[in-house]
Amino acid sequence: MIDVLYFAWVRERIGLPKERVETDAATVADLVAELKSREARYEAAFADPAAIRVALDQELADFDAPLAGAREVAFFPPMTGG
């Protein structure tokens, strides 16, 4: 089980800010593939992976990062702070 968080337009496209996901995905990319196969709204949110950033346990990570041991994964567009 892993907590999956969504922010900004990723959250809007998927329609929820957070969910708990039962998964055996080995990497972030595997989890994304699993989510995309679920429903059209996930497919829409993850249509362009280059437009999405990922954090594992609140640290920026890559899509090929392993999920083993992670409690929380977050998906969001490039940040626009400042």
Partner: peptide
């Protein structure tokens, strides 16, 4: 600090 806050602090503006 400003350069990094822009692109590496998790804020999104609408």
């Amino acid at each position: 600090l400003m350069d990094y806050l822009k692109s590496r602090a998790p804020f999104w503006k609408k």
